[in-house]
Design a protein around this nucleic acid. Sequence first.
RNA 1: GCGGGCAUAGCUCAGUUGGUUAGAGCGCUUGACUGUGGAUCAAGAGGUCGCCGGUUCAAGCCCGGUUGCCCGCCCCA
Length: 437
Amino acid sequence: MSKQQVKQIRTVKHTRDILPRDFTSDTSAQSHKFQYIESVAREAFRRYGFQEIRTPIFEYTELFARGVGEETDIVSKEMYTWRDLGANNTPGAGDSLTLRPENTAPVIRSYIQHQMWQQSDLAKLFYIGPQFRRERGQKGRFRQFYQIGVEIIGKSDNPAIEAEVIEMLDWILKELKILNTTLSINSVGCPKCRPQFNEMLKKEIEPRLVNMCGDCNHRYETNILRVLDCKRDTEIVAQLPSIQDLLCEECRAHFAEFCRHLDKRKLKYQVDPKLVRGLDYYTRTAFEVLTTSDDLGSQNALLGGGRYDGLSESLGGPPSKGFGFALGLDRFVMSLPEEVSDPSIPKVFLAHLGKEAFEFSLILAGCLRKVGVSCAMDFEMRSLKNTMKLADRSKARYTIIIGEEELTKGRFVLRDMVTREQLELTEAELLEKLKAN
RNA sequence: GCGGGCAUAGCUCAGUUGGUUAGAGCGCUUGACUGUGGAUCAAGAGGUCGCCGGUUCAAGCCCGGUUGCCCGCCCCA
């Protein structure tokens, strides 16, 4: 059968492969960059005392419906949901399951399921993994995307916790040299003061509704806070009351404390009263780090997060405070300023000439690898010139040349591919030298 | 869910008012150079021009449909 007759199977629409550098020139989809960001994040988590949690990538649909909110865009139209097999493998008769569209609700579910509060007053958890939302893709948006996030759950809602997280994020961004960013913060109030603000907002907006865009009319019904975020009706929005002026005493004090802790750490931020979040569970502090470059197309949010003090209870757990963020790994990769070194580049390339040298090289490569040296070699019989071309392309720092001469002498040519210096070394000397640097 | 743009070699793209055997650059393989990479030169491999139909003596090009991708809206990371 010719290949044209067989339909090619490709990635599902709006999903993509993250490939090794060798196989793609798309710098936003290279696996070593994802690894690099993950390693920087893991180092931050080590320093700040976070422990890794890995939850399943699918959960009962109910978790997200209750945790994230039925009315949110995520739950109402963006989830991958299906019916599991029921009894006797009856299709569609089983539980409703969903690929996770975010990871906070699963982490809280796990916190409750394993009664983590019994072990510690404060659980400091981080996760790294794929999330799934059924959206139309565009620059910086995919149906399977990757997030790194943390959740701090437990007794305390001290704003110092929030400032500490911001400090950690600041370190991660600087370490990655992602510098063209701004931090926006706001308070979205609590169950005590937000309903009053929503009421007032409704009253203010209602008479102006006829002059506002269709989206705002929709938001008026579903999530009135989001009207504040509208980019079209900016003149009208500017006349609306600010939530900052209507916070209750406790929320006001909490927010002031948060700002004070940021100031003490000399962390720069701007208060944005229009910053609201799309997920129902947020209370009090909300924040976003936005990029000022256009690397992300029309997207500008690199990460976002906030406080969710009621989430545990709404999922049937004990009253617990919670604070966390999620950062978009794909978007971080797109924002990296420079080429990052690829750890898969081998240290040494073994260039063999002839069958006998090939056999020897196979064993020598094994010896080098056992002492921790990464090696690459070719499995064809080529001229030295062509083998050197491969060595060059592999970007290995050193090449060991192994031919008949070397085999009889027991001394091998070690070529430094950058300085072009060559040494003649015995096998033992090779191992020693390459191991050392 | 709604808009806009684009589909030609592995990649980036040319391709004239429709005209014979479909091109370039990069990459790949080989050679010039018998055991030394990056440079240069040469040769070679690699295409049902996304798919289906229509118009025409003739379609990569025109028309209709379809699929895919990209970008934007909504929303988010």
